[in-house]
Structures are given as structure tokens and as C-alpha cells.
């Protein structure tokens, strides 16, 4: 079920380089939160620190606190593997497993969780997830074909199906539609609106209209100069951000008067 995320004084490093500084923010459950900001300001870095994917890179580390419904995600006895099972992620570039069939891609997460499932139950879950990702009608006759045979937009929706099949509490999406055509983009936006009933959704996007269309809350990241860490400049309701932001930098960025 959807959970809330509280972040305080988060600093994110690549080795000695501090990429993101002093972020404190709360992300509401059952809503879509959009993160916007210029390239290189640390949106992806921030997103990946929420499900502890950041530390996968050598030398990458995080200071500060991230908690989900009160549970400290970076606590000493917390296994990052468990965190990632609860917080799903969709990447900018579609990344289905090319060596697996469409079916196996969707089932991959469930099989990881080592839940023993009857074949019929698994079939039903795969169908439900594909339907949830708006892909079922297009692939139901070729579930056993390789996932790499799908179009880019279909692959991205397959990745969404794979992520929601394990019923995560939170779904992180890093520019999920940036490589897609307007129709696939719209399909994914509709999907987010449906999915926020069940998950907490955080999305990074460069598309202002998209942020305005799908999200309830918007956070604006910016960096003062190259080599400086990115900071969360403003976090507000999407309506306010796009009509009457508190910060001048936000207004400049949104109206295109940036830099």
C-alpha cells in the first residue's frame, strides 16, 4: 500500500563530489510528486537515493535520513534489497531483460521474492500487471516472445508492469516518457493517474506540461553553478508552483527564462 516518505538533511555524494545538498522534504502517499529542474542538478541522483540504488555505484554514498512510514531506510540493520522490493523503479531508458520473454519479465520480481505461486495465480498476476500497464491487449498473443521485440513505448510499459507486479509501496520513475512518442506518453500519464490510488509515485520529468498534468506536488531542483551541489529550491503544490511560485528561480525556470 502507498506509504509516505520523509527525507531530512539528505546529502548525496559520488566519492568526494557532493551532487545533492541538504534536501528536506515529505512525499505524500497516494499522490504523484514531480521533480523538475535543469540537467545535472541531481534529480536522478536524488531519486535513486530513495530506493538505495545510488549506493550501487562504487564510491557513491548518502548522508542524512530517509524514512518510509517512520521506518528508517538507511538504518544499520536495513537490507537495501528489502528496500528495493518495497520501492519500485522505472528507468529513463526502457530496460526489460532481453534474454527473457515478456511473461518472464513481468514475473521476474515475483520469482525473486521466492513466493511460491501456483501457475494459474502467476498467470493471473501477470495479466493483471500487464493490464495495469495498459499493455495486455498488445502482447497477450505473444507472451512467450522475447521482450526485446517490443517497440520502445511497449518496452517502457512492460517495465512499468514489471515494477507494479510486485505491488511496491512507492514507485519511482525517472523520465519514464522521455524516449516515447506523444501517444505512448499520454498512455503512461493516464497510467500514473490510475496508479496513484495504490502507490506513492515520484516522477522526474523535463516536460513542464507533464508535471502540471499528472502531479499534485512539484519540487524544483537547481544548482547555483557548475561543480556546486544541486539543491531543492522549492517544494509546493503543483498548482502553486506553476501559477505563483514562492521563488524567483522557479518562476524563471518554468517560464523558460533560465540561465
Amino acid at each position: 500500500m502507498a506509504k509516505r516518505i520523509d527525507i531530512s538533511d539528505l546529502n548525496i555524494y559520488y566519492g568526494d563530489f557532493r551532487a545533492v545538498a541538504d534536501v528536506t522534504v515529505s512525499i505524500e502517499p497516494r499522490s504523484v510528486t514531480a521533480l523538475i529542474g535543469p540537467s545535472g542538478c541531481g534529480k536522478s541522483t536524488f531519486l535513486r537515493s530513495i530506493n538505495r540504488m545510488h549506493e550501487v555505484l562504487p564510491g557513491a554514498r548518502v548522508e542524512g535520513k530517509v524514512s518510509m512510514d517512520g521506518q528508517d531506510l538507511y538504518g544499520p540493520d536495513v537490507d537495501p534489497v528489502d528496500v528495493r522490493r518495497q520501492i519500485g523503479m522505472v528507468f529513463q531508458r526502457p530496460n526489460p531483460f532481453p534474454t527473457m520473454s515478456i511473461y518472464d519479465n513481468v514475473a521476474a520480481g515475483i520469482r525473486l521474492n521466492a513466493r511460491k505461486m501456483k501457475k494459474s495465480d502467476l498467470d493471473a498476476l501477470v495479466e493483471r500487471s500487464l493490464q495495469g500497464a495498459n499493455l495486455w491487449r498488445e502482447v497477450r498473443d505473444r507472451l512467450n516472445r522475447p521482450a526485446s521485440g517490443l517497440s520502445g513505448g511497449q518496452q517502457q510499459r512492460l517495465c512499468i508492469a514489471r515494477a507494479i507486479a510486485v505491488e511496491p509501496d512507492v514507485l519511482l520513475m525517472d523520465e519514464p516518457a522521455s524516449a516515447l512518442d506523444p501517444i505512448s506518453t499520454l498512455a503512461i500519464e493516464d497510467l500514473m493517474t490510475e496508479m496513484k490510488e495504490r502507490f506513492t509515485i515520484v516522477i522526474v520529468t523535463h516536460n513542464m506540461q507533464q508535471a502540471a498534468r499528472v502531479s499534485e506536488q512539484t519540487g524544483f531542483f537547481n544548482l547555483s553553478a557548475a561543480g556546486q551541489p544541486g539543491r531543492l529550491i522549492e517544494f509546493n503544490s503543483t498548482e502553486k508552483i506553476f501559477s505563483n511560485p514562492d521563488e524567483k528561480a522557479t518562476e524563471d525556470y518554468i517560464s523558460g527564462r533560465f540561465g
Binding site: 550501487v56 528507468f91 530496460n95 531483460f97 521476474a108 520480481g109 525473486l112 515494477a163
Partner: peptide, 23 residues
């Protein structure tokens, strides 16, 4: 991309190897 796909699903390192690397 493929290794991170497995890790983001909550694969351990060995599970990631079985899902993404060996195939």
C-alpha cells in the same frame, strides 16, 4: 541498464547475476 533493472527489483547480487549477467 540490465544489471540495475535486476537490482531495482530487489535482487541480491547473486540473483542479479542469475537474472541479467549469466543469460
Amino acid at each position: 541498464l540490465h544489471r540495475e533493472a535486476a537490482l531495482a527489483l530487489g535482487a541480491t547480487r547473486w540473483e542479479m547475476i542469475r537474472m541479467a549477467v549469466l543469460p
